[in-house]
Design a protein around this nucleic acid. Structure first.
Lengths: 356, 356
DNA sequence: GCGGTTTCTGTAAGCGGTTACAAGCCCGCG
DNA sequence: CGCGGGCTTGTAACCGCTTACAGAAACCGC
């Protein structure tokens, strides 16, 4: 072997371009297999060789090439995250949760945003680039999504219609709405008006159903007014309630912006909140705690949802790798149960809000 | 060739596992090179062969393996985004801007969050997985970052101390602060108090310098009080101004939370804003437009900054690929100039705010 | 019909790793 | 001292795709 080993001293100084495993092997005077073994841990490698390789690697500034490695190991160490064009808090919290979970597992996050409709074909590109997919595409036809899914890639669906063979995570809108209505009823409300979202919206439907169920269970009256998820419809309802056109002692809006619209309208007309009319919303947007009085709302732990999705996906990936064939362990669907955040619009408090 | 070509009819039905280029070649009865040519476009391929290959590919549901392709082409089609542990609006807007720019170029975004200190070594893992890096690490020692950068990988630095050889994008804090102070002076302020950020903070220093320069230029008095970027220090200053301990007709805070603290304190003490004391902040957080009176603030187009970073990186990547060697075209450093958003805390308006 | 192009197409050598397999080494034991 | 057997290590075959190169086929004008 000795004649084949070049003099380490004669090795060129660290290059601009990256050193490969072959360079390291040459400099260390060993075979590429040995270098690979040293880098991948616990194969039987003699100490002398290990240090020789490590020195050569350090000298060359060698870093393994993730792409090559993933090709030969059939594992990329990244998961694809497919999201609609989201904004603000929701987006960042979701990603934060996913990252938290992924990084503890040594996984990277490859982000793909589906710009309005176009671009489902980018999913195909992901094959060989990720080990699995977390897909959130509530606005898309499940059949179309299914058709574009790279076959044989583990996937978890988030907040959208369930797909065959892949588990999905949804938000338990029903339970959240029920909790809000039950809370209002427990606070003494007898006639609750539910300001719902647009009839076509799935979340809106579920929230409404939850509200109705809880109202029935509590024996209180619930009247539903259809809104559009925007502040304006809240304003209208707030004014009707203030004027007595709608007789109610509590308002439960299907999202916070509508609740805030109603709240402001009530305030403007001198209606005491919560003394005369209590108000609750859904989503717990950051603004909810800042309005005065602070808005009671149903909160979803978005980060936890993201984390859960990644955890499920990771489980599926290892399961697939360990030979459990597809389809089998299939759909461990989960529902994320929101929790109620009680603030000043539903309970009397001595302390004033932030004064904003 | 004919004996080597298996009967297409005998080909197995589409498999569970993914078909490779060899499978397609076999089914189509051609060589892998031809399949590759068909998929990669504009090489000379006869029409008959093209359709044969396309049919075979469709039948097998073949999708090229991105990993393998990137290995042989030395191009991954992804760029790494390295960020500190960010929250909310900033994070989502930055990513939105990056995605917008990246997706038009057919690039993916591989996200890496640097959880408090730990994890710079994950940068090394990125080699072979991305074509370039956008790094934002304002809290880290530039030298340490430089040391961990995979050599030979194009990079752009965002809002942090400049690095050798890689362009960086920074926020022009000076210009933003100057604009705010000039605006206050133009509105009639003579004695402005600048509530700065902590002395050790780079942004804070720059904002202060900009404020001082603009005050000098406008010939108005500027007195600096050091704050800590939190609401509390704003409150204190607001109260001093209300009490007359600090004599001022305008407050310019180095960020919005402090400005809001001051604003609320002034309001509480019955000081008219902006009539008696004008207030301006920095950052234009979402809350700024919601407080009453709405806060004038210096806004940074975060999405544009993200987009710009990606655009620069893309340019560097292609430059590197086209042979311009490193270091040369080096640091086309850019500064993102913020713009002033004028609201009710600096100009009289007839309309009331949102009433929040 | 033939040489000279020009246009396809196939062969095979990578890209940078991993890893099954076998060969080499060293050891203790009979 | 010879030999079986466990550690180390090297050889080489992949992973799935691109592409340089060369051979084959088709086309041209004569």
């Amino acid at each position: 072997m000795s004649p084949a080993r070049p003099d380490p001293v004669a090795a060129p100084a660290p290059r601009i371009a990256h050193a490969t495993i072959h360079d390291v092997a040459r400099v260390a005077g060993v075979s590429v297999a040995s270098v690979s073994r040293v880098f991948n841990g616990r194969d039987h490698v003699r100490a002398a060789m290990r240090t020789r390789v490590e020195e050569a690697a350090a000298q060359l500034g060698y870093v393994p090439h993730a792409g090559a490695r993933s090709l030969s190991m059939a594992r990329t160490g990244a998961i694809g995250v497919v999201l609609p064009d989201l904004h603000g808090e929701f987006f960042s919290e979701l990603l934060r949760g996913m990252d938290r979970e992924a990084s503890t597992r040594g996984l990277g996050l490859l982000l793909t945003v589906l710009h309005d409709g176009r671009g489902l074909d980018t999913l195909a590109v992901l094959r060989g680039q990720v080990d699995g997919l977390v897909v959130m595409a509530p606005q898309l036809d499940p059949a179309v999504v299914a058709q574009h899914m790279p076959r044989g890639l583990a996937a978890v669906f988030l907040a959208c219609a369930p797909q065959d063979g892949s588990p999905s995570l949804r938000i338990d809108n029903r339970a959240g709405a029920a909790a809000a209505v039950a809370h209002l009823a427990a606070g003494g409300a007898k006639r609750i008006v539910h300001l719902s979202g647009p009839a076509g919206n799935l979340d809106a439907q579920e929230r409404r159903a939850g509200a109705e169920a809880a109202a029935a269970a509590a024996g209180v009256t619930l009247c539903v007014v259809e809104g559009d998820f925007r502040e304006g419809s809240g304003t209208v309802v707030g004014e009707c309630v203030a004027a007595g056109t709608i007789e109610a002692d509590a308002i439960f809006a299907a999202n916070d912006m509508m609740a805030i619209g109603a709240l402001m309208a009530l305030k403007r007309h001198g209606v005491a909140v919560p003394a005369q009319v209590a108000v609750a919303g859904f989503d717990d947007i950051p603004l909810a705690r800042l309005v005065s009085p602070a808005l009671t709302s149903v909160a979803i732990d978005i980060a936890a949802m993201g984390a859960r999705a990644v955890a499920q996906l990771a489980a599926r990936i290892t399961a697939a790798r360990d030979g459990f064939l597809e389809g089998a362990s299939g759909g461990a669907d989960e529902a994320i149960v929101p929790h109620l955040v009680v603030r000043e619009t539903t309970i009397e408090t001595s302390r004033q809000g932030l004064g904003i």
